[in-house]
């Protein structure tokens, strides 16, 4: 498999490490006075940490180019065919300024 790193170009998959589905969103950090023991907190984390759509088809997923430029990438890949349709940089690669609310 070869992944086209948006910064480095196409590289063989041995340079990358896989994390998994990019869809689950980590519940935001909370200010503790408001957040401790908030109802549904555990349920939201259960969903984020454990449940997966386990898509059979196009899936967007996180890969880390650790053997290259150390960027986290969002790779659109078909889990049936391994075909990759797009590779984007994660919101916080490089030095672009990112507002807390603006990340994908």
């Amino acid at each position: 498999m070869r992944i086209a790193c948006p910064f480095c170009g196409e590289r063989e998959n041995g340079e990358f490490t896989y994390l998994g589905d990019a869809k689950p969103q980590r519940p935001a950090m909370v200010a503790l006075d408001a957040g401790v023991g908030a109802s549904g907190e555990q349920e939201a984390f259960y969903d984020y940490v454990y449940l997966r759509d386990n898509v059979a088809g196009e899936m967007s997923e996180y890969w880390y180019h650790g053997g290259g430029c150390r960027s986290w990438l969002v790779v659109q890949r078909n889990t049936m065919t391994h075909e990759i349709s797009s590779v984007k940089a994660a919101a916080g690669t490089g030095a672009a300024a990112v507002k807390a609310s603006a990340r994908s």
Binding site: C8, R11, G14, E15, G67, G68, C69, R70
Partner: peptide
């Protein structure tokens, strides 16, 4: 920036 023998 690449990997050689599994090393960056």
């Amino acid at each position: 920036a690449t990997a050689i023998d599994h090393t960056a």
